[in-house]
Design a protein around this nucleic acid. Structure first.
Lengths: 198, 198
DNA sequence: TCATAATTTAGAACCTGGTACTAATATGTA
DNA sequence: TACATATTAGTACCAGGTTCTAAATTATGA
């Protein structure tokens, strides 16, 4: 096997198992550990620990913004059964890498989370929604969602919530949500009142 | 500061910066490195490298199933401008840990991705949607989405797409999407024809 | 064919961020 | 005062490397 072939194979192996040590690589490629290390140097592949660190940092950044808990976006104001405001910054993880436009479901998720959070019941579940993406949202933009409870039917009933999301002065999204309350685990989209932050 | 207080503080510090070394902790807590290590032992906190490894492994698992590309769900059938089918399995990362119910935006994202993918244009962007979560989706369930193009207005116009998502025989979600075509970067929700996997 | 260059292997010293263990030294507390 | 608890100190060792020097092997070209 030529040097080039070996290095291609090495790239391949590390690509689909980044947790492999140099020692394991010597076994798979049948060359000395020094050769492995020279190859890594030439290919600019960092050592195992550095690779793990980078993955951990990357995921840590993601975890801070991806939904690790019930709510997408930081709720900064909440008047139960009345209104609420949340802020969500569009970051690298939320956009199409090709054009830097936010994936719609993140914009949707922020609004949906807020609509559920604003309802003052043990269990609140989204039943349906009518949504409109008014304009695209770009990387780095800060989305401010405002939710208003429009109607509250009796116990175990429906609530209607309107959510508007803005970037600065511009409205980028609007949605009308119908949320079931207290009807524990009867309809889709869970989320209880204990959901406040991650 | 008592031992208990210090250990609480240590938990706190590591919680909001898991990348801290023992050496850095001695500076922040003003105790010897041995004390730090005894505290970590008692609290069951692994060493920095082990913490990073765990985070890396966790993120690696996630990355394999979370949307690293444009499409959520595996598209298994696609007749451009006509219909499409995608499969998406609800996994640990997609549910509320509390009750094992899928977060709505994943169900939405699968349908939305498919609605955009089925349109045969360079650029397709969701403009609005009318959606209904018919029943909740649970951990482990396989969601099969079927999209049907209902109307195609002339060049640079709108298309209407209906999407139904099933678990087995049961419909769990339905949505009516209005998608803008070719109007490059004019409305929200990007997604080009190159989106086919992940 | 022989010299030179590229490639591969070997080995030693050193590094970080620890673990494991022993032992000494505070600091309470009954 | 005596004993227990908590804290600090120090040494040996480990994984998974880097860095460096040097030897051995394998092309390659003239």
């Amino acid at each position: 096997m030529s040097k080039k072939e070996r290095q291609q194979l090495l790239l391949q192996i590390i690509a689909d198992n980044p947790f492999v040590t140099d020692r394991e690589l010597t076994r798979q490629l049948k060359v000395s550990i020094q050769t492995i290390r020279l190859d890594r140097m030439e290919l600019g592949i960092p050592e195992l620990r550095e690779r793990m660190k980078q993955m951990a940092e990357h995921s840590y950044d993601q975890v801070r913004s991806l939904p690790p808990d019930e709510v997408v976006g930081d709720i900064v104001d909440l008047q139960l059964d009345k209104s609420g405001i949340s802020i969500f910054e569009i970051r690298e993880e939320h956009v199409f890498s090709r054009n830097g436009i936010a994936r719609g479901h993140y914009v949707f998720a922020q609004a949906n989370s807020l609509a559920v959070a604003v309802i003052n019941d043990e269990i609140a579940l989204t039943a349906s929604a009518d949504i409109r993406f008014v304009r695209m949202v770009r990387l780095g933009e800060k989305c401010i969602s405002k939710a208003y409870v429009r109607s509250l039917a009796g116990r175990r009933g429906k609530a209607e919530v309107d959510v508007f999301t803005y970037v600065g002065e511009e409205m980028v999204f609007q949605g009308h949500f119908v949320v079931y309350r207290s009807a524990a685990e009867e309809y889709s989209e869970g989320g209880s009142r204990s959901a406040d932050r991650h």
